[in-house]
């Protein structure tokens, strides 16, 4: 140990001047980028959350914590928080579940054309979200929409408070579960054949193999999918913007959509910043909980 520390402090061999320049320039650009587009705006938003701030008319008046206090009594905000948590939980769960089931099915040795299925499942992921959402909006039309026509239903999916958020969730899961398919497929391909063979030799049936070998080995992939999904879905708003505009009434407001409205419709940047920081805390807590749960399972 003492030796390795000593090695650390030994002078490194002289690097070519050009390499040093390249390194410094690269680091400077990266730092400048992050500082300009992340650190400074986040700092400005944090300070702005304590102000009555409207950049359109130049208003910037210090109001202390009143933007945060106002949130406590803002029913729409808390409804949006509830909706966001529900939306996030349901969509993350089904994205991971469907993603795993499809990937496991494709992974089967009896399935041919694996690349075809992977491509088909992944295509919605790379399709533009706004375009896909507009298509789904038409599919949800109560009289002439494809969904009601196929299912023989007469449901006003987007204007019924009991189905509107569900409709947004269904569209989002359909759009995004291909991402989980590809990641799980990569995880499955990385599993050691020897371990799987050994489990079979030890008498594992298919279900036991899945439950006791495959799923535990895929835990890092699951964690990645869940954490990435949570971060993504806590910020979701495009679906709501296009499909329901928060309606009927306020029943499908998600927090990010509310923030968008506050900032870019009402130009109330102060309260939008306060909401953003509350959302930031939720995201951090949800991510930490996911790590904790996964770490607990791994132990």
């Amino acid at each position: 140990m003492a030796r390795s520390r000593l090695q650390l402090f030994q002078k490194r061999p002289l690097q070519p001047r050009s390499e040093v320049w390249l390194r410094n320039i690269t680091m400077f650009c990266m730092l400048a980028f992050y500082i300009t587009f992340f650190i400074v705006p986040i700092g400005m938003a944090f300070v702005g959350s304590f102000h009555d701030w409207n950049p359109m008319n130049g208003k910037y008046v210090k109001v202390g914590v009143s933007n945060y206090v106002a949130l406590l009594s803002n029913e729409t905000f808390w409804l949006s928080v509830k909706n966001t948590l529900l939306f996030c939980a349901v969509v993350v769960f089904f994205r991971a579940l469907l993603g795993f089931l499809c990937a496991y099915a494709i992974y089967s040795k009896t399935v041919r054309g694996k690349n075809f299925f992977l491509t088909m499942y992944y295509m919605p992921v790379i399709a533009p979200l706004v375009a896909v959402t507009f298509i789904w909006k038409f599919m949800y039309e109560p009289k002439v929409g494809l969904i009601n026509t196929l299912l023989g239903l007469s449901v006003n999916w987007l204007k019924n408070k009991n189905t509107a958020l569900l409709a947004v969730m269904i569209m989002t899961v359909w759009k995004d579960f291909g991402y989980a398919v590809v990641l799980y497929m990569a995880g499955l391909m990385g599993l050691s054949e020897e371990v799987l063979e050994a489990a079979k030799v030890d008498g594992c049936n298919g279900l036991q193999l899945l439950k006791s070998v495959v799923l535990p080995l895929l835990r890092p992939t699951t964690l990645l999918i869940i954490v990435a999904s949570i971060i993504s879905y806590l910020q979701a708003y495009v679906q709501v913007l296009v499909l329901t505009e928060g309606g009927p009434g306020t029943s499908t407001y998600l927090t990010s959509y509310l923030i968008y409205n506050e900032a870019f419709v009402k130009f109330s940047f102060g309260s939008a910043s306060a909401m953003s920081f509350v959302l930031f805390v939720f995201t951090a807590v949800a991510t930490a909980i996911s790590f904790k749960i996964q770490a607990g399972k791994a132990a």
């Binding site: 006003n156 019924n160 409205n261």
Partner: peptide, 20 residues
């Protein structure tokens, strides 16, 4: 201001679809 339409649309939908 544009929020007139936003809030009155919400009110209309609350009445028509949510039974408020």
């Amino acid at each position: 201001p544009s929020f007139f339409e936003t809030y009155l649309a919400e009110a209309g939908e609350e009445i028509l679809y949510n039974g408020v």
